[in-house]
C-alpha cells in the first residue's frame, strides 16, 4: 500500500511531468489562459492519460510480448492513444459541448501530448505492474492538472497586472513557469525514486 502512495506522490509532486520532466509543455502554455478551460483540459487529459496508461500496458503484455513484436511498441501505443483521445472527444461532445468548443484543437492534440506517450513508455522502462501502471498514469495526470490549474490561475492574475512592456505575453508566462518549476524543486527528496 505504501509503495502505491509513494508512486502517486512521486509522480504528482516530486517527478512532476510538466515541471520536472518537461513533458506536455504545449497544452501547458496553450490552454492556461483561463482557469475554467485549464481545469477542463486537466480533466480531459486525466481521463486520457489514465485510460491510455492501462490500455497500453495491456496491449504490451498481452499482445506485443507474447507475439514477440515489442519493436512495434511505439506505433501500437500511438494507435491506442489516438483511439482513447477520439473516444474522449466523442464523450465530451455529448457531455460538455461548450468545453468541447472552447478546447477546440487542443482536445485532439492530446494525442501528440508527449506526456501521454511518455507515461506509456516509462511504465515499461520501470517494469510496473498493472496496478502500478494505472496509478502512475493517474498520478502523472493529476500532477499535470494540478500544475496546469495553478499556472492558469497565476496567468489570469498576471494578465491584468502591470507587466513591463518587454515582459508582456509569452515572456512573463515562461518566467512564471520557470519560477513554478523552481518551487517544485522543493519537493525533490520527498520520495527517492
Amino acid at each position: 500500500m505504501t509503495e502505491y502512495a509513494l508512486i502517486l506522490i512521486g509522480t504528482v509532486l516530486v517527478n512532476n511531468f510538466v515541471l520536472v520532466k518537461f513533458l506536455g509543455l504545449c497544452p501547458f502554455m496553450g490552454v492556461s489562459k483561463k482557469l475554467e478551460t485549464a481545469a477542463g483540459m486537466g480533466l480531459a487529459t486525466t481521463f486520457v492519460l489514465t485510460l491510455s496508461s492501462v490500455t497500453s500496458w495491456l496491449v504490451n503484455h498481452y499482445l506485443l510480448v507474447p507475439l514477440g513484436i515489442e519493436y512495434l511498441r511505439i506505433i501500437a501505443f500511438i494507435l491506442v492513444i489516438a483511439a482513447v483521445v477520439q473516444f474522449t472527444e466523442t464523450l465530451m461532445r455529448k457531455t460538455s459541448p461548450v468545453l468541447y468548443q472552447v478546447l477546440g484543437i487542443f482536445l485532439p492534440l492530446i494525442t501528440t501530448n508527449c506526456a501521454v506517450l511518455g507515461v506509456a513508455l516509462l511504465n515499461l522502462q520501470s517494469e510496473h505492474t498493472l496496478v502500478e501502471a494505472t496509478l502512475y498514469g493517474f498520478g502523472a495526470a493529476l500532477g499535470f492538472s494540478l500544475v496546469l490549474t495553478l499556472f492558469a490561475a497565476m496567468r489570469e492574475r498576471v494578465a491584468v497586472g502591470d507587466v513591463p512592456e518587454p515582459f508582456q505575453g509569452s515572456a512573463i508566462a515562461l518566467i512564471t513557469a520557470g519560477l513554478m518549476s523552481l518551487a517544485f524543486m522543493g519537493f525533490a527528496g520527498l520520495v527517492s525514486n
Binding site: 496491449v59 499482445l63 506485443l64 507475439l67 514477440g68 513484436i69 512495434l72 506505433i75 501500437a76 494507435l79 491506442v80 483511439a83 477520439q86 473516444f87 466523442t90 464523450l91 461532445r93 455529448k94
Partner: peptide, 24 residues
Amino acid sequence: TAILAMTLLAAVLGLLLGYSAIRF
C-alpha cells in the same frame, strides 16, 4: 504476425470507436 496483430488491434479499436460514436 506483426501485420496481423496491428490490423487486429486497429480493427478492434475502430469497432469500439464506431460503437461509441453511435452510442454518444
